[in-house]
Design a binder for these strands. Structure first.
Lengths: 218, 218
DNA sequence: ACCACTTACATACGCGGCGTATGTCCTAGT
DNA sequence: ACTAGGACATACGCCGCGTATGTAAGTGGT
């Protein structure tokens, strides 16, 4: 039966990814010995090289898995919010808070980019950025935010979030720093709104022309 | 003469830093062989371990040097601008553009954080963030920007810039992407202004109370 | 059902890099 | 001048990675 075979292989891959994820997330990519964590999964480096080519390939697989999980979580957060704008803001805040989780921070925001380069440029395009982009696109067509290139904005927000998370995590008082960061982040996002609450601005400021241009720059 | 001795030592340190900077900036930290680049400087690993303890120590020294240069450049940019706000914006744009330089990008934004953790938390506190913070503080006391924690804002901007730079550098069309990123970045910063050009907002929005609170959170 | 071939791993080997321990020379203080 | 300590170089061992090779099990054709 061929199913059996495929399942075994998938299980082996999964075990390797899980073991690597554990190791990368705790001691870090560079310090994680392939011999060690493959042995922890009851395998050897032979299996690793067979399935993933090299250590980097395995890291990439781990990143894809985590990225998918993060994207799903973000989508749930934004979907649960009462309004689209609030959904977006909560999505961003959730992004910061996810970046506080040691495993995500270490793998996605430290070792990942360092080893693989800019992940969002990879075949496995960063789902989180796509999610943020889509939220921004909808907000812009609604005229809820200023005319801004969504992908650019998503990437800027992404960068700000991840750095904020790094800062918070390394801070002496993580809770306090986190509060400051989230507050500041909300303030920054507020600047993107057309109908913001900071002062008496004309609500019609985001005029019809806002939907006219596409972000495709020829 | 004791000066001679000290000068020789300083020169050795400088040679090591320069060689390491070259190597780290091109092939990257992990791929840079200590034997290779110390030999390139006419020295051996012995000198390196003597002066910097280990490879990480040398990286830290390289980072401090680059950071100082960047800070100086940023200060010149902001000082040359006609207004304080414009100076700040140009400072941020310059920051993005510096992050496009391969050496800065690789060492300061990729390998540095990956190897040393969040650099801005280190004894050699990141000068660029301090510079941005100071600019923001002044703008806030002038009432030119909304009430926001300057350090938080500086760090968010810092994160956004560095990620933008990574994105640009890995892009297919760096010039076009750079233009998009800078435009988007300006739009994001515009959101921080109290007296912005997006709509008729009361210019007195930044009232005297803005200068009342210190960023020291007790 | 048998055989040729491939797949999925494990084992074995070599190399390069890092850290440390040790050695040597040279300078500076007395 | 003599000595102690600093500034390096040299030597050694270990570990981790990548590759080449081995092996058992599975798969497809006839």
């Amino acid at each position: 039966m061929r199913r059996q075979r495929h399942d075994m292989i998938a299980e082996t891959r999964a075990k390797l990814i899980a073991a690597a994820r554990q190791a990368f997330g705790t001691v870090g990519y560079a310090e994680a010995s392939m011999d060690d964590f493959t042995a922890g999964a009851g395998l050897t480096r032979g299996a690793l090289y067979h399935h993933f080519g090299d250590k980097k390939g395995l890291l990439q697989a781990v990143i894809e898995e985590i990225d998918a999980e993060m994207t799903a979580r973000l989508n749930r957060v934004s979907a649960a919010a009462p309004s689209r704008w609030e959904g977006f803001v909560e999505e961003c805040v959730a992004y910061i808070q996810m970046a506080l989780e040691p495993e995500i921070q270490r793998i996605m925001f430290r070792d990942g980019p360092a080893v693989l380069g800019d992940i969002s440029q990879w075949p496995s395009n960063n789902g989180c950025i796509a999610a943020l982009s889509e939220s921004l696109r909808q907000l812009r067509t609604e005229g809820a935010i200023v005319d801004i290139d969504e992908e650019v904005a998503a990437r800027l927000i992404n960068g700000a979030s991840s750095h904020a998370a790094l800062w918070i995590a390394n801070s002496d008082k993580p809770e306090e720093t986190s509060q400051r960061a989230v507050d500041g982040f909300r303030a920054l996002l507020e600047g993107l709104r057309v109908d913001n609450s900071r002062g008496p601005v004309d609500v019609m400021g985001g005029r019809e022309q806002s939907a006219q241009q596409e972000h495709e720059t020829p």
